[in-house]
Design a protein around this nucleic acid. Structure first.
Lengths: 226, 226
DNA sequence: GGCAGTCATAACCGGATTGTTACCAGCTTG
DNA sequence: CAAGCTGGTAACAATCCGGTTATGACTGCC
């Protein structure tokens, strides 16, 4: 669970991130079109909050680009009296908007509403590289292939995809997939990874997708292995 | 695709329904808590628009009740300066709100955004592919065939048809058909699906219509199985 | 009462999914 | 080198899940 906030106004950025962090959301920020898009790619947030006026390109364009790559909910921030623009944003794929000024409490409530809705409908496939996961249908797409996976494998992939290209620590995987904290259950994870690797045809020695980082965790590779 | 609008103000009701009908949405209306809830049960709309002040019970309560039974998007209508209440509504499960006065264009845009998000745009409630259901007469048409079905089977098909081509989660089916929340009664669903499959002559191994998605739910296939 | 239709409940089966145990190989460390 | 860690693999057991069948309660109808 991670949120991205893009705004060129430093004060606004501070206020918004503070409110969200108070509500215990991890927040990533950016202050321009370029850095915002880059942050979206590297951080893969679960929700994006975009200002309309951005250096380097409008929030509309950013909204459109993000929507083409992802189904993460998008919330637009705007000044008063730009209703026409708002309609345009919603048609571009934004999910909600707030007119400045707004209360932090409202912001948090609407963010929660968007996340709850997005989470319910897991119909939105998450993707990274040539992998695309449909957590609800329990389907994994690898290029042309379509592979049926189990609920546990889906949960595993969910976390790995959300942190594609980054190492995910063993303990985090255990907590996310099984819920219980603490060690002792590494064996389950070994099995799960092993079965998943077999299913997608991955070689642990030369992993194309599921890389092992000894004594740390696993990582989903996004760049085709050189 | 059907929308429900609940408001005790006749003028508001007229304006809203007119705007939505202009955008070619079928609209059902109600003017109180009781009639609203009843209409929701009988009409099974894909989206509900609720005023906060209703005779017979507040829009909040109605929102909560609906959310407990369905995942249909809910939009709240409210007068200015009730922000605290809005937060409450969003926490209760509402997905969006509009403050009066609002422009019809905004209303339609936000309704569309909600529907797109819910992934139900274009779904037709009573027919899909070569299936067509008459819930009143309890008749199911498959191509040329006409099959008599039971009330429970009708309710099952209703939800599946409304989400044709999409997986419908077991819990949602249970809630829709029997009304109980929570699991434990998967057995009933097994039976119901089994009898229905027998009736329409469907093979669970190679389902032409009623597909099983293990550990998720059932799905009505719209594309003739290759 | 007899009958047919509907629905709830339970039991059983086979396959899929998941948990458990064991063993092996490689690496680090003392 | 031995001990102890790691991760990969295999085999097996327990459990879950959906399909099937059987049975009984309940209803409305003749």
């Amino acid at each position: 669970m991670k949120l991205l906030v893009v705004d060129d106004d430093a004060d606004m950025l501070a206020v918004v991130s503070f409110a969200l962090r108070q509500a215990s959301f991890p927040v990533v920020t950016a202050n321009s079109y370029g850095t915002g898009l880059a942050a979206f790619h590297t951080e893969l947030p679960d929700l994006a909050i975009l200002d309309i006026n951005l250096p380097g390109g409008s929030g509309f364009e950013l909204c459109g680009v993000i929507r083409r790559e992802s189904n993460a909910p998008i919330m637009m921030l705007t000044a008063r009296g730009e209703e026409a623009d708002l309609v345009r944003a919603l048609e571009l794929g934004a999910d909600d908007y707030l007119t400045k000024p707004f209360s932090p409490r409202t912001l948090v409530a609407r963010v929660k509403a968007l996340l709850r809705r997005a989470g319910q409908e897991g119909a939105s496939p998450t993707r990274a590289g040539d992998l695309s996961l449909d957590a609800e249908l329990l389907l994994l797409h690898i290029g042309e292939r379509e592979i049926r996976i189990t609920p546990l494998e889906s949960r595993l992939l969910q976390l790995l995809l959300a942190n594609a290209g980054q190492v995910v620590h063993t303990d985090r995987l255990l907590v996310h997939v099984w819920g219980h904290r603490g060690g002792g259950d590494r064996q389950l994870l070994k099995q799960l990874v092993h079965r998943l690797r077999q299913k997608i045809g991955d070689d642990p020695e030369q992993p194309r997708w599921l890389g092992t980082i000894p004594s740390v965790g696993y990582m989903l590779r996004v760049t085709p292995q050189s």
